[in-house]
């Protein structure tokens, strides 16, 4: 029970790093005075506070044994990263962002769905293909035709 709480330590480091980045960015703009605060004043104050909280977490993490995070959560999540779902789920959304204007709504949605579906360990290609095709068509009907949102049927890369 004397092992330090790794989640506290890691969180402390993450918040200190974030605070440093924001403080650095805040120094780029005018500070001003307490009466006439410039755009940099409040962000800098907040960054300093955030760094202080991060330091507090580091301290506690080093001194306190790993305690259960909250009721019902047991020892908290494991530190192992689930790379496959993380990369494929985020990757599919990123693909959507990068290709929407080039490929148009139906094609992009279709491919996004396939990439996302493959993140599941129970990926079934035929089922995924069918769902993706149906959803892509449905999305076009609902968002573009019924709601009149400005989506493209065929994107700029394929002559739309």
């Amino acid at each position: 029970m004397t092992q330090p709480d790794r989640s506290d330590l890691a969180a402390g480091l993450v918040f200190i790093a974030i605070a440093a980045a924001f403080a650095w960015a805040a120094l780029d703009v005018r500070m001003g005075t307490l009466l006439r605060m410039g755009p940099g004043y409040f962000p800098l104050v907040l960054s300093v506070l955030l760094a202080a909280l991060g330091a507090l977490m580091l301290l506690r993490g080093a001194r306190r044994p790993a305690a259960p995070a909250g009721p019902g959560q047991g020892q908290g999540p494991s530190f192992r990263v689930a790379w496959r779902p993380l990369l494929l789920v985020c990757g599919s959304a990123l693909f959507f962002a990068l290709t929407l204007e080039g490929l148009g709504l139906p094609l992009t949605t279709f491919a996004t769905l396939l990439i996302a579906a493959s993140a599941s360990p129970q990926f079934r290609p035929a089922e995924a293909l069918l769902t993706a095709a149906a959803f892509a068509a449905g999305a076009w009907v609902v968002f573009a035709m019924l709601l009149g949102l400005p989506f493209r049927l065929a994107g700029t890369w394929i002559g739309g």
């Binding site: 769905l113 996302a116 579906a117 599941s120 995924a128 993706a132």
Partner: peptide, 16 residues
């Protein structure tokens, strides 16, 4: 609907 079918739909809906 099985989660393996539902979650990709949620991803796509979020994007849109």
């Amino acid at each position: 609907v099985p989660y393996r079918v539902l979650f990709p739909l949620i991803v796509a809906l979020s994007c849109i």
